[in-house]
Amino acid sequence: MIQAAVISNGLQGIHRYFVSNEKVNYSVLEIEEDFNPDLTPYDLLVVPNGCDHIAMAKIKDKVASFLEEGNALFCFDGWFTNWIPGNQWVMSNEKKTIDIRYKVKTDTYNLFEGIDIDKLIYNHNISGWWACGYIDASKNADVIVEDTWQRPIIVLDEKTTNGTIILTASGPLGDSGAIPTDDESSYSVLGQLYQNMLSLIIKKINHETSMF
């Protein structure tokens, strides 16, 4: 079992979507004044959708050290501050959501195995519901998914630091989903993709895979 820290800035849903199980033990770290958590007990840091990127920027050096020690970071949000090494999320409203399509580009670890990418593109036949903006990705990173205009939407970066960074352009994911829904078929993919990402991290921690 791996140890994961989930950052919470007081929004509802975090405790529902990140429930400890046989694979991973989740600890929710609540952001309060003078937020300065001890990350040393954890293998994985999860920054879910709707997080506080002022607080994260204030612990930027601590996150960098955490990654240099070989640990993992998931960020499924729009980090407008510059706290993630080598990669920057950028908001953009220049493109129309009706034109948004996603394509798997470089998926070395088969994270999209069993994933119907159309579920990330369409909801009730309307496109552009899941992610926002794009990632200005490190040249060292793999772009797993790009959009219509070849902008990175999901990124895996194993080279900028000694750790593993997996990012979405504010596309919500979670251990058991990420959005309250009355339409389970549209949103179950959010948990499935997360599980594939989590399995990669567990394998890496257990040295069952390598970057080559």
Binding site: N9, C51, H53, I54, F80
Partner: peptide, 27 residues
């Protein structure tokens, strides 16, 4: 009142609104 969330930031820093709205970080 700003919770460090990107949508709050994008809204209040858009040129259309930036001279009208002051972000106040909740903490």
């Amino acid at each position: 009142l700003f919770n460090g969330v990107w949508s709050h930031y994008t809204f209040a820093t858009a040129p259309k609104y930036k001279d009208l709205i002051e972000l106040i970080y909740i903490h």
